[in-house]
Amino acid sequence: MLMVFDNIRNALTRFLKGGDYEKSVEEFIRELQKELVRADVNLKLAVEITNRIKERALKSEPPPGISRREWFITIVYEELTRLLGGDKKPSIKPLKKPWVIMLVGLQGSGKTTTAAKLAYFYKLEGYKVGLVAADTFRPAAYTQLKQLGEQIGVQVYGEPDNNDAVSIAVKGVSFFIERRTDIIIIDTAGRHHKEEDLLDEMRKISEQVKPDEVILVIDASIGQQAHNIAKKFHETTPIGSIIVTKLDGTAKGGGALSAVAATGAMVKFIGTGEKIDELEVFNPPRFVSRILGLGDIESLVEKV
């Protein structure tokens, strides 16, 4: 799982080999831009990032004791980390109990599977978890979640014959609150940015349930539209965090990262397979240093 930065590392190695500083900056920037776009990072965003790196690299002076090349690398590191949502460590602990999470996203992005993965993750952390099946749209959505809940021993609230998703969500949440559940996870139907009725439904669920965290579940293979779509979702119900799914394929996930820029939310988890335990906590700084192949980058950044 290399995500976005597959070929950037090679460009960086070439950069470190030396030669004229300004020329190698230019060349690196050109390659970076191309690789970002090939990895599906939104075109405008890729231009913005590379321009910012270039400007900082050519216009600012490195602090004393740091070479220009080292300085350049820390700039690249910082900007790429920012692309992934910043240098904060994601906080995965619920800030209060009960903690109500609502999953939203496009059709087929992986919400239902991820709902079960999250439930299992938190169950292993020792929390009492409940799942609410508030997708009344997709055929057998309730059965899917029910079967997953049975696999992991987590209770699922659902009303397969009710087609009012808002009322199911509201009742499901009170059902679990009455049973002193710590974390309540609501699965919702897939929808896209042009389906106003469905967006309206999502808004209503969130207004009535008042979730503590709305998570956008987004497929790693999505392209340039991710930005628009995430923005539209964010305007409908503010997105608190992001989960990128299906990173076990060949997709680099750059589209999903456009959602970070569009919402200001962080990637908290990534999905790396269909199985229930194939969910990883995501840590942007560690990820960037690993991908750039620069083990000691954090100490370098500290030195700077």
Binding site: R38, A39, D40, L106, Q107, G108, H192, D219, A220, S221, I222, G223, Q224, Q225, A226, I229, G249, T250, A251, K252, G254, G255
Partner: peptide, 27 residues
């Protein structure tokens, strides 16, 4: 339809593995 560059990879791999006669683009 919302797939980015990975559409190439999906087409290549499935075609090599089993052969593809035509496609349906959804969404």
């Amino acid at each position: 339809a919302l797939t980015g560059n990975d559409a190439l990879e999906q087409a290549r791999f499935f075609n090599e593995a089993v052969g593809v006669d035509c496609v349906v683009v959804t969404k």
